[in-house]
Design a protein around this nucleic acid. Structure first.
Lengths: 160, 160
DNA sequence: TATTGTTATACTCTATAACTATA
DNA sequence: TATAGTTATAGAGTATAACAATA
């Protein structure tokens, strides 16, 4: 998310009791509810996977965009990740202290700062991406490959 | 998500500039990112829609389950909505003060409390549901009816 | 005058532990 | 001894306003 923040899910994603009974309610038929639940459990899983690298989803997201080659400004990151500009500041501060990214003033508009990865940052992103991919695979284990593709296509159309 | 909390999106969901450039990055191809973004914007829209009734998505979700006929306990609500039991307490407190729901001790286990709607609560839920449906329609405006159905089916399979 | 990034601050949401009443 | 709900509290995330530098 922006991955928007991250809600909380237990270690094993327990699929607890009451859930079966409530799965047939009207609420469980609301797309926004389902999207939120998937995002919730998905982000929680990704956060668990990223913990061994000392990263959270929000840092991973910023690092990924820094490594994208698009040379995003902080303002663009804020818009794309649906996070407040002030939040972007602190996320980048942490990545920068860690030596994963650096800020460069945009020559075309010296008010803006472009986020660029360091070599270490690129390497870190490579590791993190693999961990996230594994976590995502687990989260979508119920779906066939074709279903995953279709879900991806529809999510992309709806969310972007 | 539960409606998990709600991130922030601006009034008109502006589809701002940088988003086009970043839409082709690796991050934008991660399902968890897309799900989070959809949940984020969807919940924000639902919150805006519900504001005129003095409700937020979390209250709406609890009210919906109270009205479902399944007589959920607070523990079940906590599990289904992926919210801490203590959060359920305060959400129900607010709905109860408003006269929309009431707590009834479960006769089969007097430790548990079953959440039941009042007549006013049912009526409130009816209004709220219509507002949410309109907001959801707006959020998924990019999708055809068939695509919405398919997205719903896949989200349900993956999230529940 | 408007915008980018920054700082400080307040607010909301989330997580934890301790308590009670039941089991 | 264990579980449901409650309370209090601390922590993380989010939103707001004001400021410096640049446009």
């Amino acid at each position: 998310m922006t991955p928007r923040t991250t809600p909380s899910v237990d270690e094993e994603t327990p699929r607890v009791d009451g859930i079966e009974r409530l799965a047939h309610t009207d609420l469980a038929a609301e797309p926004f509810f389902l999207a939120a639940r998937l995002a919730s459990t998905g982000s929680a899983g990704a956060n668990r996977a990223l913990a061994e690298l000392g990263l959270k989803v929000r840092h991973y997201s910023v690092l990924a965009l820094a490594c994208s080659g698009e040379e995003p400004t902080q303002r663009e990151l804020s818009q794309f990740l649906v996070l407040d500009p002030s939040q972007i500041v602190s996320i980048i501060d942490e990545l920068e202290q860690r030596g994963a990214v650096e800020r460069r003033t945009d020559p075309r508009d010296r008010r803006s700062k472009i986020l660029a990865p360091t070599a270490a940052g690129r390497s870190l992103y490579g590791e993190a991406k693999a961990l996230v991919a594994r976590s995502t695979g687990d989260s979508l284990a119920e779906l066939s490959a074709a279903e995953r593709d279709e879900l991806f296509r529809l999510l992309r159309k709806a969310a972007l």
